[in-house]
Amino acid sequence: MEFCPTCANLLQVEPASAGRKSRFFCPTCPYIYTIDHKITKKERLPKKEVEPIFSWAESMKNAPKTQATCPACGHGEACFKQIQIRSADEPMTTFYMCCNESCRRDWRED
């Protein structure tokens, strides 16, 4: 897939015709790119950095705590938050963080 450098829309391909080479064109703006050679692009997208649900300092101060067993260390108490990440007719997702300072593992229950 190629994208327009001007407006970022997906470029469309116009095949070669009488005396003219194949080309990419943007359906929105006047951008045109003539294809002179075979295009091979194997570019990996960078992994997006994931923002944590909890920060350790925030969890210990503000988040409520509950009786939940940590899957990593077996500690019996965890901080939790509930967030609606799916459609409104689905139940909320509960995110936990182990209260054991040496563990701090986080997990979720859908």
Score class of each variant (00 low, 15 high):
E2A: 14
F3N: 12
F3I: 09
F3T: 09
C4E: 03
P5I: 05
A8Y: 14
N9L: 11
N9P: 08
L10P: 01
L11S: 01
L11C: 02
Q12C: 11
Q12R: 11
V13D: 03
E14W: 08
E14I: 07
P15G: 15
A16E: 01
S17C: 02
A18R: 10
A18D: 09
A18P: 08
R20M: 07
S22D: 06
F24I: 00
F24P: 06
F24W: 09
F25E: 02
C26P: 03
T28F: 15
T28G: 14
T28D: 15
P30C: 14
P30L: 12
Y33K: 15
T34S: 13
I35Q: 06
I35H: 06
D36C: 12
D36W: 03
D36V: 10
K38Q: 14
I39V: 04
T40S: 15
K41H: 14
K42P: 03
K42V: 09
E43S: 13
E43F: 08
E43L: 07
R44C: 11
R44V: 10
L45D: 09
L45M: 10
P46R: 02
K47F: 13
K48S: 15
E49L: 13
V50H: 02
V50E: 09
V50C: 08
V50N: 04
P52H: 04
P52V: 04
I53Y: 09
I53S: 04
F54N: 01
W56C: 10
W56T: 07
W56P: 08
E58F: 11
S59F: 10
S59W: 05
S59L: 03
N62T: 08
T66L: 06
Q67M: 11
Q67E: 15
A68E: 07
A68H: 00
C70Q: 03
P71S: 08
A72C: 13
A72W: 10
A72Q: 12
C73A: 09
C73I: 07
C73V: 08
G74L: 05
G76A: 15
E77G: 00
C79G: 06
C79E: 03
C79Q: 04
C79H: 02
C79P: 05
K81Y: 10
K81I: 09
K81F: 07
Q82D: 12
Q82V: 04
I83C: 01
Q84C: 11
I85C: 11
I85F: 10
R86G: 14
D89P: 00
D89I: 06
E90G: 00
P91F: 10
P91T: 01
M92W: 10
T93N: 00
T94Q: 06
F95G: 01
F95P: 02
Y96P: 01
Y96R: 03
M97L: 09
M97A: 04
C99W: 06
N100M: 00
E101W: 13
E101V: 08
S102K: 13
S102V: 03
C103T: 01
C103K: 02
C103H: 01
C103R: 05
R104Q: 07
R104N: 00
R105W: 10
R105H: 12
R105D: 07
D106V: 13
D106T: 13
R108I: 01
R108A: 10
D110M: 12
D110L: 14
